[in-house]
Each structure stands twice: as structure tokens, then as C-alpha cells.
């Protein structure tokens, strides 16, 4: 079945895939032209998202594995929060992004910094990225925790015996060992973020924009959202079909490539640890 889905998409989508398709803006009611703004928007979105989610996720994992006192009551609570965050539907994240980031944080920023002028109190790439960061947080926390857990306890003792403080131990011994796992988590999060649409529906994605987002409060086009829009709201389905297939193919290739890189990175670092 996997083969059927992929085969169908690759077969139909390949034909229209060209350099122009990847580098041009949509034209003629999105029946012609390319998807460059959507690719750019996706990249910008996941970049911002990564900047937010990696530090937060990695530090949370470090807390759970290295800093929390043994038997602390907080550890199960944080784990529970992570697990449940992973189960929250994507659309609920979208609602939250709108209710919290856009309507609350954004409005307050406008109120205090811009005298009530509408700057951040509207859907924007920043809010979409932060919403997406929350969605991908569990992925980063769980993979980082796994990587930290794989570092032998003996190495931590060595660091302490050499007079390391806790942070020195983490910084000089644990993190260099765990960096592969952390990278894997980051890439998986990016792959997840590049594929999700529901959280950005109301927090910043746009149907059609002829320009690229240049400010944090700009709206943006995004591949997944572009697929959704073209599939369900296109005025002329038959005319957009080849473009649509190619867009789906690009999105698939992107997420698969990211997943594949994650697997490679993990394997590479595992081998290095064996040696």
C-alpha cells in the first residue's frame, strides 16, 4: 500500500518537476508557474521553529537526565507533560497558537510597544513557528533523552573525579557524546514540522503571496498548506492537477530526505561510539 501511494505520486508528479517549477512564483490562479514561495516559506518556518524548539527541548532533556535530583517529584510530571503534549491533536495546537500567540501575546506586544497599532497581533510566521515548535517539542525531548541515556554512567564519574562541576561534566563529557542523538531529534522535528498543516492554518499561512516573508510578522506560503489549498479550493482542478502532484512530490521528497538523513546521522554516531 505504501508502494501504491508513493508510486502513484512519483509517477504522476515527476513529469512536471523542473527547475522552473521550483524557482518560480505561482501564476494564473495557481494553474501555472512554480512553488518557490512555498518552498521558501517552509524553509523559513522550520528554521525559526528549530531555533525555538532545539534549545528548549535539549535543555528539558538535560534537566530530566542530568539535573533533576534522583527521585524528584517533578521528573514524572515533566515526562507526563511531554507525553501528553505529543498526543495533543495538531489542530488544537493551531487553536492555541491563535488564542495565545496571536490574540494574546501579539496583542500585548502591539499594545505596549506599538501603541495599539496592528503589528504582531495578527497571524505571522513567528507565531506559526512557535506553534510548530510546541508541536515538535516532544520529538526533540524524547530523542535527546535517549541520546543522553546512552552515555555510560562511568564517563560521568570520570568527569566528576576530575573535579568537574555538574555543568562542566555535561558540557565536556555528556554533550559531545550525545550530539548525534540530539541532531537526529532536531532533524525529525524539522521533518515533522515541514509536513504538518493544521497548526499553521490560522497562525500565519497564506493562500497566495507574490512576495517572500522578510519580517517576523509577515505571512507566508507553505508547501503542505499549498497542497491543501490547491486540492480543495482550486477553481479548476484538472488544470492544477499536474502542479499539485509535483508539489506533493516535492513535499514528500523533502520529508523523506530529512528522515533519511536522521537515520544516517544516528547510524554514524552509533558507529563512532562503538569504536
Amino acid at each position: 500500500m505504501l508502494v501504491v501511494i508513493l508510486g502513484n505520486i512519483v509517477y504522476v508528479g515527476w513529469g512536471h518537476l523542473s527547475w522552473e517549477f521550483l524557482t518560480q512564483v505561482p501564476r494564473a490562479g495557481m494553474t501555472q508557474g512554480g512553488i518557490y514561495p512555498a518552498i521558501f516559506g517552509t524553509a523559513a518556518l522550520v528554521l525559526l521553529m528549530t531555533l525555538a524548539v532545539l534549545p528548549l527541548g535539549v535543555m528539558t532533556a538535560i534537566y530530566l537526565q542530568e539535573y533533576a535530583p534522583q527521585g524528584s517529584r517533578w521528573v514524572p510530571l515533566v515526562r507526563l507533560a511531554v507525553q501528553n503534549l505529543a498526543g495533543v491533536p495538531a489542530i488544537v495546537f493551531g487553536l492555541f497558537g491563535l488564542g495565545f500567540f496571536v490574540s494574546f501575546v501579539g496583542r500585548e506586544i502591539d499594545h505596549f510597544l506599538y501603541g495599539g497599532r496592528l503589528v504582531y497581533g495578527q497571524p505571522a510566521i513567528l507565531w506559526a513557528a512557535l506553534t510548530m515548535a510546541l508541536l515538535t517539542l516532544p520529538t526533540v525531548v524524547v530523542t535527546t533523552e535517549e541520546a543522553l541515556r546512552a552515555v555510560p554512567q562511568g564517563l560521568r564519574e570520570v568527569a566528576y573525579a576530575l573535579g568537574a562541576t555538574r555543568w562542566q561534566m555535561v558540557h565536556h563529557v555528556v554533550l559531545p557524546q550525545a550530539i548525534g542523538g540530539m541532531l537526529t531529534g532536531g532533524i525529525l522535528a524539522v521533518s515533522r514540522g515541514a509536513g504538518e498543516v493544521a497548526p499553521i492554518l490560522f497562525t500565519g499561512a497564506a493562500y497566495y503571496l507574490p512576495y517572500l516573508p522578510t519580517h517576523l510578522n509577515d505571512q507566508f506560503m507553505e508547501l503542505g498548506y499549498h497542497v491543501y489549498v490547491m486540492t480543495t479550493q482550486s477553481p479548476d482542478v484538472e488544470a492544477t492537477k499536474p502542479l499539485l502532484y509535483s508539489t506533493v512530490l516535492v513535499l514528500l521528497l523533502l520529508t523523506f530526505a530529512l528522515n533519511f538523513v536522521a537515520v544516517l546521522v544516528r547510524a554514524q554516531f552509533r558507529r563512532r561510539q562503538m569504536r
Binding site: 534549545p55 528548549l56 535543555m59 534537566y63 511531554v82 501528553n84 492555541f96 555543568w167
Partner: peptide
């Protein structure tokens, strides 16, 4: 420095709990 780092790390762990609570509260 050590103190600052520890505080930041602890804070981010609690941010996760806070995020879940905020989601619930704001929705």
C-alpha cells in the same frame, strides 16, 4: 555561571509543563 545554567535548564523543563497548562487554559 553554574547557577545561571542550572536555573535556565530547570526553567525550560517547567516551560514544558507550563505549555500544556497554557494550552488548556487558553483554549
Amino acid at each position: 555561571v553554574e547557577r545561571c545554567i542550572e536555573t535556565t535548564i530547570r526553567a525550560s523543563a517547567f516551560t514544558v509543563i507550563l505549555a500544556l497548562v497554557l494550552i488548556f487554559v487558553f483554549i
